[in-house]
């Protein structure tokens, strides 16, 4: 999957779950900084990213996925080694 389509799908999942435009969030956005990102939504994010991309996060990954950039990085790795630098995900 090319990086742009991957990001489109990634942000679509996050936006619909968090009910905000996720592309406007800073990369270090996390449950601590986004009001609508509670633990329930965190669960939905994991489940829906797995479903949308056909991937499975390991337990360790789930524990360590703390921020938006963690999530995007993990999805990119599992989807074929995309490494997203800060500039690559800037809106």
């Amino acid at each position: 999957m090319d990086p742009e389509r991957l990001k489109d799908r990634f942000f679509a999942v996050l936006s619909s779950i968090l009910e905000i435009d996720a592309r406007s969030l800073p990369l270090d956005a996390s449950p601590d900084t986004v009001e609508s990102w509670d633990s329930l939504k965190n669960m939905y994010i994991i489940q829906n990213l797995e479903e949308a991309f056909g991937i499975v996060f390991t337990d360790v990954e789930i524990f360590e996925l703390a921020s938006l950039s963690d999530l995007l990085g993990a999805v990119g790795r599992k989807m074929g080694g995309h490494h997203f630098s800060d500039s690559a995900v800037a809106p």
């Binding site: 619909s16 779950i17 479903e51 949308a52």
Partner: peptide, 8 residues
């Protein structure tokens, strides 16, 4: 949009 119904 209700995201959960759309996705699930």
């Amino acid at each position: 949009m209700d995201w959960r119904s759309r996705i699930t």
